[in-house]
Nucleic acid binder design. Structure first.
Lengths: 219, 219
DNA sequence: GCAATTTTTGACCGTTTGGACAAACGTTAA
DNA sequence: TTAACGTTTGTCCAAACGGTCAAAAATTGC
């Protein structure tokens, strides 16, 4: 009875080096995509020789797979935190805030993910159809409940979630374009703050007040 | 006095074959990115041999450059049409409609573009900082005028445009993810119609009514 | 029909790339 | 000291790739 994917025991050095390689690979993969990156590049960025790198990962595919699977967890975490018992607008707004923070703090991860999806998600399609779909179904149901109760402006919960994903991730994935259009004066770090302010006014300008009234009435 | 980029005269066959190759290259490039695609793949898809393809385009780079420059025109066209003298909400809404249609009808172009931007736009950065920026600056100014006049809900015109780009293109670029999450029942062609309905309700639910009143008052 | 021109192809080349391997190096513990 | 084990590297290989070239095939203009 072998455990599923029995994780091999690793020495301290192995853990450290795998971590180092992962960091280097993230840098390289997120900039050039899977096929655009070479093992040599990654090894270089990690400050070691190619054979040495291949001592820790059996091939290029495994490096990428490790990265993207770890990434998926980070990626779903904010949505997982959305709480059915909380206040709808607080929940949504802090979800958006977390997503914006992720685009700001982990743009490489965002681009890596975008790259994978663009290519047709060859490595994580099962994950999307399984774990991701289940999670979104669950949260969409919560949102739908909020909407039915009149605590949130009515719309399609799925497209609502998509719209949040799209707008927030846009600032990481299309960073170059955003900066090019905003120019030097506004292209700086402030753009994420601007986005926060914008998203607050954009997605539910009226139902926020509506909700306040609703909540007040409920007390 | 040589003309800038004096276009070489082309025979009928040359025009047809270049067109054929462009179509094949779009298919391949949009799926695998620049480095992920091989000349052989493209030649195969175009139904010709590699040397034959290289008789029409001097190298891989030139195929890609031709594609992406042609694409840029198509891409900017909808925004160009936005008319300062028109009704703000009509203008915005028909802009969004056109963008959604482009995501639906030209997903490969959208993905090609996304790919280029993701890699840092090495081939079109000057275009972004020049032509694109100028166009957006111009239209953002128009939108700002509308907002100041109270004919459109106040927000940041640039982020407003980004939000439209993000949400509409999301359905082409992240197609696999959208379909995976929506599942079989809703993943069909109807999703673009759903998006249209959603975007109508999402971006400016209240200021539409506000505008109606405003317009009425103006007559 | 024939010569000039355009189009197509098979064979080829140099380079890059993913990956294998054995030998060398370092560390630790008896 | 030495045997065992973990780590690192130089060298090598086969396949894939971008691109060339000369010659064959097809087309066009007269």
């Amino acid at each position: 009875m072998d455990k599923p994917a029995a994780r091999p025991k690793r020495t301290r050095i192995q853990r450290e080096k795998r971590e180092l390689i992962g960091e280097a690979a993230l840098e390289v993969f997120s900039q050039h995509g899977f096929r655009g990156s070479t093992i040599d590049q990654i090894a270089d960025a990690a400050g070691m020789s190619k054979p040495n790198l291949l001592y820790y990962f059996k091939n290029k595919e495994e490096i990428f797979a490790t990265l993207i699977h770890r990434l998926m967890e980070t990626w779903l975490a904010p949505l997982r935190e959305m709480d059915a018992t909380g206040d709808p607008h607080t929940e949504i707004r802090s979800y958006i805030r977390r997503k914006i923070e992720m685009s700001r703090d982990f743009p490489r991860e965002s681009r890596l993910f975008a790259n994978e999806i663009l290519q047709g998600a060859p490595r994580i399609l099962p994950l999307l159809e399984g774990e991701l779909k289940e999670l979104v179904d669950e949260k969409a149901a919560i949102i739908a409940t909020w909407m039915r109760a009149g605590r949130l402006k009515k719309s399609d919960p799925y497209h609502f979630i998509f719209a949040i994903w799209a707008t927030t991730q846009h600032y990481a994935d299309f960073d170059v374009q955003v900066r090019a259009v905003l120019g030097e004066n506004r292209g700086g770090e402030g753009r994420f703050e601007e986005l926060r302010g914008f998203s607050r006014g954009c997605f539910w300008p009226e139902e926020r007040r509506l909700s306040r009234r609703f909540v007040t009435r409920m007390r």
